[in-house]
Simulated assay, not measured.
Amino acid sequence: MPKRRDSEDAPAGDFLAGKAIPPFAALRAFEVVGRVGGVRRAAALLRLDHTVVSRHLKALEEWLGVMLVDRQGGRLTLTEAGQAYHARVSAAMLDVVSATREIMAQGQIHDLRLWCVPGFATQWLSAQIAAFERAAPGFQVELRPTDRPANLIRFEADVDIRYYGDAWLPQPGGPGLHTLVLARPPLLVVASPAVAAGMAGIGGVADLLGAPLLHEEHHEQWRHWLRGNGCDPGDGPLPGALLWHAHLALAAARAGRGLALANRYLVADDLASGALVELAVPGAQPVAIGSYCMVTRADRANNPAIAQLRHFLRQRVA
């Protein structure tokens, strides 16, 4: 490899003139490769051919005089030096992105990218965003329904909204993040009219332990609702099918497969149309077991656009 370009070769005060800074395209390619773990995945994100990304990596190694990537065995991994360098390059890139987005936000209000859990996005939030855009002409929110929380620290989105249970992981927030509870809705027991009619004779909450309960990705929602109503179901599996998603659990309830837990943000239209009905369970009380939370970067929580959206959504929830 060519001789490393040491700082001693550059005149004093010349570091920021470029002689001590590798080509930015190579640095950017290296940062993305190290983050996603592969040249082809990095190339897809950068919208470049994978051979171009490979050339950038090679050029950076030659510029530095240091091996950054181990290419043995058909797999690409960062060397020890590459890992240490990547951590600092990645942090510097994030600082540049953060500074750029903040200075852009000082002028006119810019569009926001909002990720949200799909059920809430489809059944409630989409209509609120439409109303928000009507109230602020020329302002747009890009709404992406997804089960995966956005990596706000890496600016995948400006805002992330999803439902977090009180007593199970994941929990909202984390280092560098600001969390606001938007809504804490009580849960309803819902079923198709036919299933509800067949359970008209139930005597109380404990009778549901023998009913076909419909679960999302785990049993925790039902377990905490039952305990909140004075019925301890134990720690073992509960009866009923795992559907893995709120959409599928509600679809199964409409199809007559059993009882689902939901809140009015998710089932208002179904209740209005009669596709689902609320099951009257003797002795049951409203129980909230989690909250819809709006999460942003802490250093952007008071950004004018984010603050305006937060204020609007809080009014709509209230």
Rank of each mutant, 00 (worst) to 15 (best):
V190A: 10
R113N: 00
D207I: 02
G138A: 06
E220P: 00
P186F: 03
A121I: 06
I202M: 11
Y164M: 05
I202A: 03
R134G: 02
L112A: 08
A194M: 05
H178K: 12
G173E: 00
L112F: 11
Y164Q: 01
G119K: 01
G198D: 13
V96R: 13
M199N: 04
V195C: 06
H110V: 05
W222Y: 05
E156A: 14
R154W: 12
L114M: 03
R223A: 11
L188I: 01
V189T: 13
A183T: 07
L188T: 00
E133D: 11
G174Q: 01
R162F: 05
Q221P: 08
W222Q: 07
L188G: 04
A130C: 02
Q221A: 14
W168M: 11
L177G: 05
P172F: 06
Y164C: 04
Y164P: 01
L214K: 07
D235N: 10
R162E: 09
D235S: 11
I153N: 07
D111K: 08
I161N: 05
C116L: 03
P172S: 11
H219L: 02
R162C: 06
L187C: 05
L169F: 10
S192C: 07
A194Q: 15
A136P: 00
L180S: 10
H215G: 03
W225I: 01
A183W: 06
A136R: 15
A99R: 15
P193D: 07
R144I: 12
D207T: 04
D158G: 06
R134E: 15
V195H: 05
V190T: 12
E156D: 14
A196C: 04
I153V: 14
I129L: 15
V97W: 13
L187W: 09
V189E: 07
W225K: 08
